[in-house]
Design a protein around this nucleic acid. Structure first.
Lengths: 196, 196
DNA sequence: ATCCAAAACTAACGTTAATTAGTTTTTTTC
DNA sequence: GAAAAAAACTAATTAACGTTAGTTTTGGAT
């Protein structure tokens, strides 16, 4: 019956959210029960409802926190007058950084958005589409001004996004490297290839 | 009360499996109910049990069908004396081909294996690890004999696997291309990069 | 036409889920 | 240290799930 102790920084709601992110990521949203979540926090399930509205609300918070992070960063990058390659590099690095530091949240937003209520699901997918469109525009610009090879921009986008999205898997392998090394070499590989 | 009509080729069980694959992929395994599956087949839920043992059994069948496909193909590639680059190319092409032609099954095996019973889960993960180890060996050989740049083999593996795994997402984008084009350009991108 | 196995059906069981209602305990505030 | 607010508790509700049992229907072979 001990109260949830809020971390040094962050309200009780945020403590619950962080715990939910861990649970949802490791067991899946649908397979995670409020009872399990409560157990992680050493309280009874109904007590959760003193702090949150519903299980769905937890999922929404996580998904849109991630969507907002990416939208914000894209805007930041778009505001600069860096080269296309430099912009792509920043986007790639931000993604890798997020995978490494906010893995649970990123994984959930990418895998469990299907369980958002219809309205939120549409909003979420629209945000994703905006992000992809922004990245595509950068690749197109890079091809046009000859920074990049004459590749099909959409396929290049798919390949880069796929590589970043796929990073979420194989945590085992990923853990073998520190953030810096992985970032450097993935950027190098995706931009310059591996053949001699 | 019409009987399930087996497709021209494939038993009733296979019809159910194909339908389950579609359902599990689009709604997620845990969120898919046997009642929904039955609805897709125009029968009542308990009737399913005349053909299958359990919901879990459906998931097992799908996951191990995919695992066996990949294990088989890897063995086939390993048996040749092609160059490392040629071997990598074949593995990449096979993966892309599978994404495009058996999307439901691949997606499920990659996302829902967590819901396999403990024993099967271990067996499944072991199969995956074997596959990754085989691919890593090819990259290492390629670096050693100087076909490939002096990259870190594990990071190259992560990047390629990630790109292939990530392909499962963004079906929208993928659909814009036919198998051939996407295959050609992704292989080119992953091996040779996009910068001039 | 009749028989029989395959495959459908209806009814129900036992769990487990998210959530609500109402109450008690704990912590904060003055 | 008393009052008020916050946050825990217990008990219960409603709904959905996978699955079993027992029965009826169906459709092909004789």
């Amino acid at each position: 019956m001990a109260k949830i102790l809020p971390a040094r920084n962050g309200s009780k709601k945020e403590v619950i959210l962080k715990s939910a992110a861990l649970l949802f990521r490791s067991r899946g949203y649908k397979a995670s029960s409020m009872r399990e979540l409560a157990l992680q926090l050493n309280i009874e399930a109904p007590s959760l409802y003193n702090h949150i509205g519903s299980k769905t609300e937890l999922l929404e918070s996580i998904c849109f926190w991630v969507a907002d992070q990416f939208a914000g960063h894209l805007q930041e990058v778009q505001a600069t007058d860096d080269s296309a390659i430099a912009k792509l590099e920043r986007l790639i690095r931000f993604h890798i950084h997020t995978v490494l530091h906010r893995f649970d949240e990123l994984y959930i937003s990418n895998h469990e958005w299907k369980h958002l209520p219809q309205v939120e699901q549409n909003r979420y997918l629209a945000a994703r589409q905006d992000y992809e469109a922004g990245m595509l525009a950068i690749i197109k610009a890079g091809v046009k001004n000859r920074e990049l090879k004459k590749v099909n921009p959409k396929i290049a986008l798919i390949t880069i996004l796929a590589a970043l999205r796929g990073l979420e898997h194989g945590q085992r392998l990923r853990q073998a490297f520190n953030s810096g090394t992985l970032e450097e070499q993935m950027v190098e590989h995706l931009l310059n290839g591996i053949t001699k």
